[in-house]
Design a protein around this nucleic acid. Structure first.
Lengths: 75, 75
DNA sequence: TATATATATCACCTTTCGGGTATAATTTCA
DNA sequence: TGAAATTATACCCGAAAGGTGATATATATA
């Protein structure tokens, strides 16, 4: 699941519409919409503002090899 | 460790200077500098460009309670 | 000392974000 | 089924900010 889809899920689980969410998180409605639609050029601080609202944060992770994922071993 | 510090670490481990890294990743030198210095308003696509270069990606994680972290239990 | 990093300019262009409005398309629910 | 709510697009405009190159100076750091 992509970042934008996860955010949408979080909002839905919180029982909020985009309008309500935008208001409560202190962000523009269009920003919320574009974010949930997968806009890739959003500003990091705005994204963090969204995540903080839901009690989430960003972390970096090493890309996983499909091979490892599916077979449980390297190569 | 913060995101910016982790990126700095990745670059160092790769044995790259900021100049070299900027060139190879196709990004401006000043952007790299500001990113490593913790600028919070960078564009997400640019950050992803950096992470992809190192084989990393972003994930969202639920904030952890200090209590759980340190005691291993809730409350 | 030589290299790398940090900080600061000037200028330019692009983009984001925001509010507002309007119109589909989709989903939800009575 | 049908109406209402929600979401998705698409414009307008404006203010603010990002990203870039080039340049300069200072401060680490090896």
């Amino acid at each position: 699941m992509n970042l934008n889809e996860q955010i949408k899920e979080l909002r839905k689980k919180a029982g909020l519409t985009q309008v309500e969410f935008a208001k409560r998180a202190g962000l523009g409605l269009r920003f919320i919409r574009e974010l949930e639609q997968g806009k890739s050029t959003v500003r990091l601080d705005k994204l963090n503002q969204v995540l903080e609202f839901f009690g989430y944060h960003l972390e970096i992770k090493r890309d996983e090899s499909k091979d490892i994922e599916e077979s449980g071993r390297l190569f």
